[in-house]
Amino acid sequence: MARKQRDVLSVEWVKLELLRTAYATRGGLMSKFDPRVVVAWYLVFAVVPWLTHNITTLSVLFAVGALAVVLSRVGPLVLGLFIFGLVTETAYIFAVAWFFDGDVQTVMALLTLTLKLGTVALASMAAFVSLDPEKLSDALVSMHAPPLLSFGVSYGYRMLPIIMEEFHTIVDGYRLRSKPVERGFLGWRIPAAVAFALVRSFYPMMLNTAKRTRTTVEALETRGFTFAGESKAGRSMRLAYLRLGPRDAALVAVTVALVVGAFMFGQHLPLLSRDF
């Protein structure tokens, strides 16, 4: 079996795809708004579906969520994972409900649940995929989230590729310096070997990261991070760029209109509403 350089379905590809998701901001709809408004927009869509059982209303909300996802240019990897999860989860619930003697009512009841969960998930995708993590963390800080959160986000953003690379190196070291893996029955030894290498590789990784962390925390101290936690000036300076504009007001207005519209539409055209 000859090996070749693959552009898809290889470790390199996965690494690259992850980086692409994390760093190549696709500049969708939501990235143009003030991050605080985006968070608020998300919160509306995270709460409203739970206030109704009307399938029509929920369908409209779901459609709005789906539209927002399209406009936000969500990457294929994330979207694919979402659709796959939604479909299998629903099918699975149906199957089990049928097994326990459910009927159409059961299915419809479950449909409302799926729509609700789906709407919330779509809204979170639309809101957070195209939003720069740094901006999101700024929004959270301006809503008085702990400063450690904001630090965590930017630190993670900075470290991700580096620690991924380091881990890859260690795993490669294991691969090359260990006994070549035999395939075994149905190749079961291969996943087992991968799992073992993964766990073992965390041993050097933990030690190396501990050393790294020591310098980082020391540097944080000398660069005034703890000082900033006590003073308000740095925080307000950092957040100074957050400003609400007419564009943000428009988003709020459209959102309110859509939600109200969904409820009114649902009142007029209730679909398969059950009554007990």
Binding site: S154, A219, G234, R238
Partner: peptide, 16 residues
């Protein structure tokens, strides 16, 4: 500790 060069260089002055 910050993702981009510009924000990292400004990290100290912003904190202070």
């Amino acid at each position: 500790v910050r993702p981009t060069v510009g924000t990292d260089v400004a990290f100290g002055p912003v904190n202070y």
